[in-house]
Design a protein around this nucleic acid. Structure first.
Lengths: 256, 256
DNA sequence: AAACGTCGGTGTATATAATGAACCGGCGAG
DNA sequence: CTCGCCGGTTCATTATATACACCGACGTTT
């Protein structure tokens, strides 16, 4: 398999909870030989992607990623554009709002705003959202270019919870419904007790580039609450699309 | 040579000015064969590090770097800690203040604040600062762990301007002076017309992890201005060190 | 319109660089 | 003292990266 990809995939094992990882742990997690992992880490360290804690000898993400993020943000200020939109969304709905962008085969969460209330959904920063198992992912998949959509549908779909669609037929149906309604819902398909509602953000080519979503405790799900959230999501996604230089798809229209 | 490192080095060709790069351009810039570059880009795209503009087919940094940066920032909020310090520094000195961290073999600029005045130094976001050619780099080098310092001194030093120290002896002398004074100055060693003054930020191990610096137009350099800047830099670097969980080096003391 | 240069991308034989099992010294627990 | 695991190193094997030649498409120049 390709060496570069294997090396970069190592970085995906760093999460909110797992900030530092030892060599043997990372070898176990990835299923790659220790010696190979070490060489990859050393290579990535030379470039500043990871760094080694001199005391514990464990590895963590390096300052190089901050540099690259600043460069990208300077070229296209997504965080700057999306943050105020998310804030308004969280305030209007009283629920956790988040935004994510297509990143490789999956969706990368790149912004979360939580509401002031106590009972709210917590979303880990920098989380990877599988396309088939989240409201955001479905919203994006439904408005992807046909070839890319086909690639997603053809995947082996892993179940994250008992509610995750795992067959191609089930996913196709959810996608079809999403295209009809213009928004996606996901009832505990990614995490128990969490209900997600998402709308796509479009790129300059008129295909989905990401999604704007609201996550609520499943216990609060109701038709009325959902209508209110969708009413807030629609204009938010509109301004996100135009704010990022995108062009709305002619095939996208919200209808409940 | 190592494939992973070669691939990651491709990302360093993206700058403030060069936001998108075509395949042939990148092959020329890097000196690597087109076919190889394409495979590396494809691998990195799978992981979200780069993405291809569907219209122009040129490549740019992907959303994955934003995700990783958020993750690192969540684990250790360097930007949050350093921004207010830089703002105060820029305001007190009336000059451009910036911060950088060790990242691989070099220093990565991860924050810049410009003062309100018209004649000020502009520093590109996400710039890579060579250790031997900038005030920040010298400040860091002077307080590195001995083995690492040796590696820097042993390098072949490339001249960036006519003023860049290029011999080991010259660099050693600058480093020695910096250790004595506790701060580094660089008179147009990296860019013409720019005079830099920098102080190290220390990591938990008591060695340099980065630097805080003030860049001024060379025309404004004077002993008095320099004294004022150093007086502002010292407490700023102190709070940066402690704010990032570092421990000041016992060997570091400012003395002019 | 023909000829040319350049673009992004592909196929394939070759050679180089990645691989993984065995091994090391160090360290903490039992 | 022994055991097990840690991070790290070594080296023969082989799988993988590489670069050359080539493709069709596009835009300029002649």
């Amino acid at each position: 398999m390709r060496t570069v990809e294997k090396a970069l995939r190592l970085l995906d094992f760093f999460t909110d909870k797992r900030v530092e990882i030892g060599l043997s742990d990372l070898a176990r997690l990835s299923g790659i030989d220790k010696a190979t992992v070490l060489r990859m880490l050393a290579d990535m360290a030379e470039c500043g992607f990871v760094e080694q804690n001199p005391e514990t000898r464990r590895w963590r993400l390096g300052a190089g990623v901050l540099r690259l993020a600043r460069l990208r943000e300077h070229a296209q200020p997504v965080t700057r554009v999306l943050t105020p939109i998310l804030e308004k969304l969280a305030q209007e709905t009283g629920e956790t709002a988040h935004a994510s962008l297509l990143s490789g085969r999956d969706l990368a969460n790149i912004g979360v705003i939580e509401p002031a209330r106590a009972n709210r959904v917590y979303i880990e920063p920098g989380l990877v959202l599988p396309l088939h198992a989240t409201a955001s992912g479905i919203a994006v998949t439904a408005f992807l270019r046909p070839e890319q959509q086909e690639r997603v549908l053809a995947r082996t779909l892993t179940a994250v919870t008992g509610m995750t669609p795992t067959s191609r037929a089930a996913l196709e149906q959810v996608v079809r419904r999403t295209r009809e309604r213009g928004y996606a819902v996901a009832d505990q398909t990614f995490e128990a007790e969490v209900y997600g509602i998402a709308v796509p953000i479009f790129g300059p080519d008129g295909y989905a580039a990401g999604a704007l979503a609201v996550a609520i405790p499943a216990s609060r799900a109701s038709d009325e609450h959902e209508r209110k959230i969708i009413a807030a999501l629609e204009p938010a996604a509109q301004s996100a699309t135009t704010g990022l230089g995108g062009r709305p798809s002619p095939e996208h229209r919200i209808s409940s």
